[in-house]
């Protein structure tokens, strides 16, 4: 099931806004398409990212996939546990497999993100 407590980008990222921070990850559908994930390259904390900009790379055996920032803002924290256990994204993409957190997010553009039903319709 696609959780309905967050928003989705057409490029398969999810973003969950709680107060003034947002958490970003990839969807279950995206991890399934990639297959066994072997490596994640995350941005540096403190980095400013623009909506739609490439800010991380996820590698599987057969593919390397760019992750785009769903909204503009500042990277405040990255999930360093993924360095040693990138497979967490395969097993739990919506919770412990999160990629990074952002603060000072610019909510402009939030209307263009999809809700759970909209995202499910897109991948159907």
């Amino acid at each position: 099931m696609t959780p309905d407590d967050r928003k989705y980008a057409a490029s398969h990222e999810w973003i969950k806004i709680e107060g003034d921070t947002a958490t970003v990850g990839i969807t279950d559908h995206a991890q399934e398409q990639l297959g066994d994930i072997t490596f994640v390259e995350l941005p540096a904390a403190g980095k400013q990212v623009q909506r739609g900009a490439e800010c991380a790379v996820i590698e599987s055996v057969k593919a390397a996939s760019d992750i785009y920032a769903p909204l503009s803002g500042e990277i405040s924290e990255v999930n360093s546990a993924l360095e040693d256990a990138p497979e967490t994204i395969n097993s739990d993409s919506y919770e412990s497999g999160w990629l990074f957190k952002m603060k000072n997010i610019d909510t402009a553009g939030i209307a263009e993100l999809l809700d759970a039903a909209g995202y499910e319709a897109q991948i159907a």
């Binding site: 490596f39 590698e59 599987s60 055996v61």
Partner: peptide, 13 residues
């Protein structure tokens, strides 16, 4: 191994 960073997969990147 680590082929995902090579040109036949990653092309212009």
């Amino acid at each position: 191994t680590l082929q995902a960073r090579e040109q036949h997969i990653r092309r212009e990147k």
